[in-house]
Computed example of a mutant assay.
Amino acid sequence: MSTAAAVAAAVIFVWIGMIVAISFLEAPLKFRAPNVTLQIGLGIGRLVFRALNSVEVNVAIVIGVCLASSPVPAQAIVAFVVAVGALACQLIAVRPFLNRRSDRVLAGLNAPRSRAHYCYVCLEVIKLTALLAAGILLLSG
């Protein structure tokens, strides 16, 4: 395995850890904390997910450069492209709907629950699965 492929695999597994820690642990648990209102939880969530998504974009660029500069299995590239596609869908198609709803809630308005959240979670599962596949394929070589 080349150094670039090893770096790509390592960064992929760091990205997986971020997704699991934030999307599947922090996000649902913050609403169970004492005295955390919907408004406070949404405000925290917006900050955390904006930061996560910014890091994800930069991490994807690093991985892309590594994959482009090293011979790697085609399946690993396909899996990585699926993960990046899921991230792009989250940022371009789903986050604007979630932001509009959270804007209303943060302004004190009563906004109905959004189904866009379920789309975001489904895309998160797709992204996580694709990253896991890409990382395993890179390690297996």
Score class of each variant (00 low, 15 high):
5 A>G: 15
9 A>D: 09
10 A>Y: 11
11 V>L: 08
12 I>G: 08
13 F>Y: 09
14 V>I: 15
15 W>I: 00
16 I>S: 11
18 M>K: 13
19 I>Q: 15
20 V>L: 15
20 V>H: 04
21 A>S: 13
21 A>R: 07
30 K>W: 08
30 K>I: 05
31 F>E: 02
34 P>G: 05
36 V>I: 15
38 L>T: 13
38 L>I: 14
38 L>Q: 14
39 Q>L: 00
39 Q>M: 00
41 G>F: 07
42 L>S: 01
42 L>D: 11
43 G>R: 01
48 V>T: 12
49 F>H: 09
49 F>Q: 05
51 A>Y: 00
51 A>G: 07
51 A>K: 01
52 L>Q: 13
54 S>E: 00
55 V>R: 01
55 V>M: 05
60 A>K: 00
60 A>I: 04
60 A>V: 06
61 I>A: 12
62 V>K: 01
63 I>M: 03
64 G>M: 11
65 V>D: 02
66 C>T: 04
71 P>N: 14
74 A>S: 13
74 A>H: 10
79 A>C: 06
80 F>D: 03
81 V>M: 15
82 V>A: 10
82 V>P: 10
82 V>F: 08
84 V>E: 03
84 V>Q: 03
85 G>R: 08
85 G>T: 04
86 A>P: 06
88 A>G: 10
89 C>Y: 04
91 L>N: 07
92 I>Y: 09
95 R>S: 15
95 R>V: 15
97 F>R: 06
99 N>V: 11
101 R>E: 14
105 V>T: 14
105 V>L: 13
112 P>Q: 11
113 R>F: 09
113 R>G: 01
115 R>D: 13
118 Y>L: 15
119 C>M: 10
120 Y>P: 04
121 V>K: 02
121 V>C: 02
124 E>F: 01
124 E>H: 04
126 I>D: 01
126 I>E: 03
126 I>Q: 06
127 K>Q: 12
127 K>W: 03
130 A>L: 09
131 L>Y: 07
133 A>T: 00
136 I>P: 04
137 L>Y: 11
138 L>R: 10
138 L>S: 09
